[in-house]
Simulated assay, not measured.
Amino acid sequence: MNEEVLFYYALFAGGIVCIVLSVLLYFWLREDNGIEFSLFFRLVLLCLFGVGLIWYTAPSLKYVVYHDYATTKGVCTVEYDDQSKPRTIDLYYDKTGDYFSFLDRAELGAYGPDVPYTCHVTTTKDHAFEISYRLYDFKTNRLLYSSE
């Protein structure tokens, strides 16, 4: 399993944990005469944060669990920002305008908009989460890097 799939599962599990934790803390910390408003407000925010994480990840759950992925192929440019944290690699498809970002670094000879590559990006069917990518030489179609 690669980093992107683990990140997806971490988001989904984080949402479940936030919801369960907020409900348990509410019943554990409340007294017979009530709960302070500030604590109640924080627990509601924690619960809403968990609901937001699940709302964001749930539509793609069946695609990730059943490995039902789509592959986008075409000419792209690769950009790598050495200063960003975490270090990411960005793939831009010029003709379609698609953009994909991965928590990885491909060791390529050159980056930037002047150097085209042939890219195969695997995503969930709804294109919400990136799974993996492969970079090929534009002229020879030789595999240069694979994140799989």
Rank of each mutant, 00 (worst) to 15 (best):
V20G: 05
C18P: 03
V44Y: 02
I35F: 05
L25H: 07
C18D: 12
S38Y: 10
S38P: 04
N33K: 15
F27A: 08
C18Y: 04
C18Q: 10
I35P: 05
G34N: 10
L43Q: 09
W28E: 03
L21Q: 06
L29V: 10
I19K: 02
W28V: 00
G15K: 12
L25I: 10
R30L: 06
L43R: 07
E36P: 01
L24C: 13
G34L: 05
S22F: 11
I19R: 00
G34F: 07
N33F: 13
G34V: 07
D32P: 05
G34R: 07
Y26P: 04
I19H: 02
F41P: 02
L25P: 08
W28N: 02
F37R: 09
I19S: 02
R42T: 01
L24F: 14
L25Q: 13
V20R: 02
F27E: 14
E36C: 04
V44K: 08
V44Q: 06
I35A: 06
F41A: 15
L39K: 11
V20H: 00
S22P: 11
L39W: 01
D32Q: 13
R30P: 04
L25M: 14
W28P: 00
V44W: 03
G15Q: 11
L39P: 01
V20E: 00
F27P: 06
I35E: 12
G34K: 10
R42M: 04
V23P: 02
L43F: 06
G15Y: 09
V23Q: 08
G15E: 10
F37H: 05
R42H: 04
R30E: 15
I16H: 00
L43N: 11
V44S: 11
S22L: 12
R30Q: 14
I35L: 15
E31P: 04
E36K: 12
L29P: 06
L24D: 11
I16F: 03
E36R: 14
I35G: 04
G15R: 09
F40S: 15
I35W: 05
